[in-house]
Each structure stands twice: as structure tokens, then as C-alpha cells.
């Protein structure tokens, strides 16, 4: 039987990975809300964040803050290029076409990274050492604190942007009704581009702050992306607090499951949750059901 300290430990580390999932999930939601597209390449932005930081640190020998900034910028640029080349030409395509295109984009990005930097796993140094801190009977690393702080900052910035800036409000308008937004003079295409830029930036940041804990390699994007999606589904595709809860729920359950049941099945837990939510409450845990049948 696990002690309460252990449980606390699992919960704490679950919360930190959950925060990452939340960030990724919000990235999904931002693009979905402005375009109706689920971007299957979302996880690759996360991977790019980690891998690019490793590159800028070790090859370009930049200091950490510069490397992080450069990595986020490049990942954002990739997001923008992806939107321009693959998404924009296909406006109004069937969902299935968009799914296939973004899957194509996802494996293309992953493949190119593998081609350039190989299949090795890379470590990113922790932002401020590995001296554990004690919380009750459990320990956490300074990196965990970085994750919490940065996640909170990003979510707050996100909220400020969407609720208090003109372009943020315009993006929200697009998500409610793209045609009406166009009529009142909002440049919908530009908002779609913005949404890709923002979620690429958020995704890459998530990839950077988790890399010191989990290591990174060309293929980490698949799992992280899917778990982020799981968070977004639980949150009912909201780009707000629902998805944050979704991420934390997935993170904690996964961590508890890995610790108490079996670590091998850890990745399966998120997908069980995903399937159960999709089967029972496809509109998410925090949204009222729709009644229309066709």
C-alpha cells in the first residue's frame, strides 16, 4: 500500500506534467476555435521547442534565455509557414482532408527533425539546478516550479490577450462566427494565421519547460500532442480553464496510475480517459450538451 507521502509525490509530479498537457491542449483549442481544424501537428511544435533549444544551447552556444527565445521564435515561424503552405490553400476543405493534411505535416516535421538531428535522445539542463525542495513529505525539483510559474504566466497572458486586446477579441469573434466577423471587417485569414502562430509558440514553450525533466527527441511530439488533445477534449475545446483542468486531470491520473498500478501502462491511461470522455461526454466535462440530432 502506498503511503500518503507517495501519493502526494505522484500528485505533485502529475500536476506538473498536467500543466504541460494543459498548455498543449489550449494550443489545440485556439486553432480549433478559429478554424474548426484539429491540428494533428500540434505535438510537433512541442517537440520543436525542446529540440531547437537543445540545438541553440549546444551548437549555437547561446545562453539559456536566448536559446529559449530563439527556439520559440523558430517554432512559431514553422507554425506560420505550415499555415501558409498547407492550411490556407485548403480553406473550406472537408474535415477529413484537413485531418490528413495536418497528419502529413506532423510526420513531415518529425521526419525532417530526425533527418537533421538524428534519433538520439537529448537532455536539456534544468533552468536552475536539480536541488530538490521539500513539500510536506514529498520532493519537487526547481524545474517543477518553473513549469507551474511559466504555465500560469502563459495562461494569464493568453487570457489578457483574448479578452482585452483588439486582435484577441477579433479572434474570439471569428470563433463564434467567421462570416459575421468578415462582414464587420475582421481579417479572418490573418486571425487564422495568428492562431497557428500563438499555438505554435505555446506548444514550443511547453516542450521547452518539460524537456529538462523528460529529455527530448524527434518523436516526443506524438504522445505529448495526443495527451494535450485529451486535455482539450475534457475541457470541451475551450481555450480557458476547462482545458487547464483537463490537463491536470490527465496528468495526475497518469502519474497515480504509473506509480500505483504499472508504469508500462502509463501512456495507455490518457487514452482510456480520452475514449471514455469521447464515448460518454464528447462535449467535454464542462459544457452543456447539444440537442440537435443531425
Amino acid at each position: 500500500m502506498a503511503s500518503s507521502d507517495q501519493i502526494l509525490q505522484y500528485c505533485l509530479s502529475g500536476l506538473s506534467t498536467g500543466a504541460i498537457y494543459a498548455l498543449i491542449g489550449i494550443g489545440f483549442a485556439i486553432i480549433y476555435n478559429s478554424t474548426g481544424i484539429i491540428n494533428f501537428a500540434q505535438g510537433e511544435f512541442v517537440m520543436l521547442g525542446g529540440m531547437l533549444t537543445v540545438f541553440f544551447l549546444s551548437v549555437a552556444v547561446l545562453p539559456l534565455p536566448a536559446a529559449v527565445t530563439a527556439a520559440v521564435l523558430v517554432a512559431t515561424l514553422v507554425g506560420v509557414i505550415f499555415e501558409r503552405l498547407a492550411i490556407r490553400p485548403l480553406k473550406d476543405a472537408q474535415p477529413i482532408t484537413l485531418i490528413i493534411i495536418t497528419i502529413g505535416g506532423s510526420i513531415l516535421i518529425r521526419g525532417i527533425v530526425m533527418l537533421v538531428w538524428g534519433k538520439d535522445t537529448h537532455a536539456l539542463p534544468a533552468f536552475s539546478g536539480n536541488e530538490p525542495l521539500f513539500v510536506g513529505g514529498a520532493t519537487i525539483l526547481p524545474q517543477h516550479l518553473w513549469i507551474f510559474v511559466i504555465t500560469v504566466l502563459i495562461i494569464a497572458a493568453n487570457r489578457l490577450y483574448f479578452h482585452h486586446s483588439i486582435s484577441g477579441k477579433a479572434m474570439r469573434a471569428c470563433s463564434y462566427n467567421a462570416r459575421a466577423s468578415r462582414l464587420v471587417g475582421i481579417d479572418v485569414k490573418r486571425m487564422v494565421l495568428f492562431s497557428f502562430a500563438i499555438s505554435a509558440a505555446m506548444g514550443s514553450m511547453a516542450g521547452i519547460i518539460i524537456a529538462p525533466l523528460t529529455m527530448t527527441s524527434y518523436d516526443v511530439g506524438v504522445m505529448l500532442g495526443l495527451k494535450g488533445f485529451c486535455a482539450a477534449i475534457i475541457g470541451g475545446m475551450s481555450s480557458g480553464i476547462g482545458t487547464v483542468f483537463g490537463g491536470l486531470i490527465v496528468g495526475v491520473l497518469e502519474s497515480l496510475g504509473a506509480g500505483l498500478v504499472s508504469s508500462g501502462y502509463k501512456d495507455a491511461i490518457a487514452f482510456f480517459i480520452l475514449l471514455i470522455i469521447l464515448f460518454l461526454r464528447p462535449q467535454g466535462l464542462f459544457r452543456k450538451g447539444e440537442t440537435e440530432r443531425v
Binding site: 494533428f40 485531418i99 495526443l226 488533445f229 501502462y265 487514452f271 480520452l274 469521447l278 464515448f279 464528447p282
Partner: peptide, 21 residues
Amino acid sequence: RLKGHSLAMATLGLGIIVYIF
């Protein structure tokens, strides 16, 4: 019952669960 991207994700999730097993 699911459509579009939810269907894609659900089948993908199912595939990964089986793979893990």
C-alpha cells in the same frame, strides 16, 4: 457516433492502447 477529428483521435487512441498492450 463520433465524427471527423474526434473519430480520428478515438481510433488513434484505440490503436495506441492496443500497441501498449
